[in-house]
Nucleic acid binder design. Structure first.
Length: 795
DNA sequence: TAGTTTTAAGTTTTT
DNA sequence: CTTAAAACTA
């Protein structure tokens, strides 16, 4: 290797990672195993392109699948080079929305569209399928959504692969017509429509090819067909494309993800180079062994050999427990014990409790609350699914788009204004002819009963007044539709209030048990006014008094969230878009400390891209995980999900499996998960009563059962004081002492880093470490046993 | 039509 | 067991 001195941020990388970062020219496919540092590769690559290659940050597009990943990527890239903040880092869907706001006109789309979520789509569909049950409507809505994922329109022949019924095709066509008439889009459209536009409008395509010279995609294994097509259309002849993924971590088949995308990438992009990242820096060897032994059973995979760079480590613990109450107690105790014996801070955040379905979080929440252990639940914030929130959002949506029949139907008669379903149907029907629903109502008003007429009029008046509350947009002339849709982002309205006082937190505190809405800054003023004048606030307030709910407080919460946006139409649109595309309320609802000092409760799906020191995987039972109805391909996906969950763990992994589980109020006996059988017994430390027939030694298990201690509380009664009792003979050896330049490590406080210099002093060797946060620190090499974990070095 | 009671149904996973 | 949908009454 040449003797050139590398910039320190490249020192953090191993040779393959570095090769991936320095790669240019042909398309690049990075097959990155779990914990192999793929995010680091992407962020470093972005920074390197800007710094060393003189690439304009604005010509870089990096796409992820979750908002969290997008945020993290932006943050980490900025740490290396500030200018990376100007690159476009978004989720596929958010980028699609950005595209459509500027170029939707080419598909007859007004830039002021609102994004319909799945519920809204169902609501719209039920207007078409009038005499179908709710379940049928949902099924069709799901199929339409799948069709869009596969880039299939209602007139495509392949549509039969999704749903072959003739009726389906007709309904899909009707749905599209109806949706177009509302002027809104659904989730699938955010990807599908841009592709259609790029194919039809060569001028727009050319602009985008000019603008984006570099396109990177993270978690590529989760891309669906439509997203693949999007990528292909965005890439011009000069565009450098780099995708990163891991076929073993593909867990979104159910929403259209196609592993084929990653398998066939080299065929679709000729000349593709492939780089494999197979060194795992995150997990200890025993954890990786257990995780791999499950996913190894899958047939449809590229296959790779993921090597643990961290030696030593404890065996994963498999705990057989009587029921789910014992399971929650076990988890709480495990976490609590660790906290008691820990010397260092931030213990709670070391832990994550994983479950298959969101419903399972409830038990853990109750138990942790009871024991005073701080926790946070990731995802599944049903906040936006609450009735009052949906009502409020419907009001706001109708405000920006008076053709939104779904929103209209939801709130026109709430609170009761004497406008029944018959009247609503007639107005919407009339709306097919009119430019918007207000006009439709006016046209129809001579035929309405005086009560219905008065009700509709009062509703429309409220909306008129609401519209008047919004200030003029600073950029008139429809700022979204700047001439150069792919070009200057500065033309977009700077809708966010720049010096936004974090009014949210303070307001919420004040609003506790308050019986009136308080407005804060910016858009929240308008939101509060509208909630009041529409009667929604009063309506839910009354409901609160009856049933003791917190609905008014929830409305307050929503208003607070709005305070960060400008009180203009543009600001409102941005607010609504943000809510549709990123429902994790995390930013507003949690302070940094709350986040950093709490146990994480999370679904397996949501853990992708995350890591924790200690992970508990719960509910490992047949029927729960994997679900009973899973077989073949779907079972393989469940295996991958198991793999994803297990590889989140850095130091310790626990698996729990109950003998019985409560479902639908009934308590049923359950079998241990198939996946537990797929792990070699010697790779696990089993505690609790091994169920009959588990593993090869059936008779042994039976014998053990016969002599098992009295059933009841305390199967794990001899639980360790500290988790050290689970050590199982393995010591987490840190291999301190002989540090060498180029060694990589994980520091408890500073994260991942690399040794850039070693020298001797009176107190022994001193090492200089460069961290990926950009920090560079000196340490005394011999005293860092408990703070550092060596994670292998480059060869 | 509004609001209440009765009955049935249902749990994946998410942008 | 909890929630949503259908059925029923005022």
């Amino acid at each position: 290797m040449a003797l050139t001195v590398l910039p320190p941020y490249l020192e953090l990388l191993n040779s393959e990672q570095r090769r991936a970062v320095l790669h240019t020219g042909k398309p690049l496919l990075i097959l990155a195993g779990a914990g192999s540092g793929k995010t680091r590769v992407i962020t470093t690559k972005i920074a390197w392109l800007i710094r060393e290659q003189g690439v304009d940050p604005r010509s870089i597009l990096a796409v992820t699948f979750t908002n969290k990943a997008a945020r993290e990527m932006a943050e980490r890239a900025r740490l290396i080079d500030e200018r990376a903040g100007d690159a476009m880092l978004r989720t596929f869907h958010s980028f699609g929305a950005w595209f459509l706001r500027r170029n939707g006109k080419a598909a007859g789309l007004d830039p002021g569209f609102v994004i319909y979520d799945d519920d809204d789509a169902v609501s719209l569909l039920s207007g078409i399928m009038e005499d179908s049950s709710k379940a049928e409507v949902k099924q069709v809505a799901h199929n339409i959504s799948r069709a869009k994922d596969y880039f299939l329109s209602f007139d495509d022949a392949e549509l039969a692969l999704i749903d072959s019924r003739r009726k389906f095709r007709d309904i899909y066509a009707l749905y599209e017509e109806r949706l177009a008439h509302t002027g809104n889009v659904d989730f699938g459209d955010l990807i599908k429509k841009p592709v259609e536009i790029l194919r039809k409008e060569s001028e727009i395509a050319r602009r985008f090819h000019d603008r984006f010279k570099v396109i990177m995609v993270d978690e590529y294994q989760d891309a669906n067909v439509a997203q693949f097509e999007f990528l292909k259309e965005l890439a011009g002849p000069e565009t450098y494309i780099c995708v990163v993924g891991d076929d073993d971590q593909s867990i979104y088949r159910f929403r259209g993800a196609e592993v084929k995308n990653i398998l066939e990438f080299p065929d679709r992009f000729p000349g593709t180079e492939i780089i494999r990242l197979e060194r795992n820096y995150r997990s200890t060897a025993p954890i990786l062994r257990a995780a791999s032994s499950v996913v190894d059973r899958n047939r449809g995979r590229l296959g790779k050999t993921l090597r643990a760079e961290r030696g030593g480590g404890k065996l994963p613990v498999l705990a057989f427990l009587p029921d789910q109450d014992e399971e929650t107690a076990f988890c709480a105790q495990l976490v609590g014990n660790a906290a008691r014996t820990a010397e260092r801070g931030k213990v709670w955040s070391d832990w994550a409790i994983l479950y298959r379905t969101n419903a399972q979080s409830l038990g853990f929440e109750t138990e942790l609350l009871r024991r005073g252990i701080p926790y946070r639940v990731v995802g599944s914030l049903k906040f936006y699914e609450r009735e009052e929130i949906k009502d409020a959002l419907a009001l706001l949506s109708f405000l920006v788009n008076p053709r939104d029949e779904v929103a209209f139907r939801r709130v026109v008669n709430k609170p009761a204004r004497g406008v029944g379903s018959v009247t609503v149907d007639r107005i919407i029907e009339e709306g097919a002819e009119a430019s918007d629903l207000a006009e439709a109502a006016r046209a129809l008003s001579p035929e309405l009963s005086s009560r219905a007429k008065a009700g509709v009029e009062s509703f429309l008046k409220v909306m008129e007044e609401g519209r008047a509350l919004l200030e003029e947009d600073p950029f008139p002339n429809d700022a979204f539709d700047s001439g150069d849709g792919a070009g200057d982002e500065a033309a977009a309205p700077p809708a966010k209030v720049p010096a936004a006082v974090p009014a949210g937190k303070a307001n919420r505190k004040r609003a506790k048990n308050r019986e009136e809405l308080v407005s804060g800054e910016g858009l929240s003023v308008c939101v509060v006014c509208l909630m009041r004048s529409s009667g929604i606030a009063a309506y839910h307030q009354t409901q609160d008094e009856v049933s003791g709910n917190q609905r008014l407080n929830n409305l307050q919460e929503l208003a607070n969230a709005a305070s960060l946006y400008a009180p203009t139409r543009g600001g409102l649109l941005e607010f609504l878009e943000h809510i549709e595309l990123d429902r994790s309320l995390e930013d507003q609802a949690e302070t940094a400390e709350e986040r950093s000092n709490a146990v994480t409760l999370i679904t397996f799906h949501n853990t992708k891209g995350l890591e924790f020191r200690k992970v508990i995987m719960t509910g490992l039972e047949q029927g729960i995980f994997p679900r009973e109805d899973k077989k073949n391909e779907e079972l393989e996906e469940e295996r991958r999900l198991f793999y994803v969950g297990a590889t989140r763990a850095m130091d310790e992994l626990y698996l729990t499996s109950c003998a019985v589980r409560r479902m639908f109020g009934r308590t049923l006996p359950v079998e241990p998960s198939l996946f537990l059988r797929e792990i070699d017994k010697s790779s696990l430390r089993i505690i609790g009563e091994t169920p009959y027939g588990f593993g090869a030694a059936g008779t042994g298990a039976a014998a053990r059962r016969a002599h098992a201690p009295e059933q009841g509380k305390g199967v794990y009664g001899n639980t360790p004081r500290g988790n050290d009792a689970y050590n199982g003979g393995f010591d987490a050896h840190n291999d301190t002492g002989s540090w060498r330049r180029g060694d990589r490590l994980f520091h408890d406080d500073y994260g991942y880093g690399a040794v850039t210099e070693v020298r001797d002093s009176e107190d022994g060797p001193v090492v200089r470490v460069y961290f990926e946060t950009g920090k560079e620190l000196l340490f005394l090499g011999e005293q860092q046993g408990s703070r550092f974990t060596k994670i292998g070095k480059d060869d």
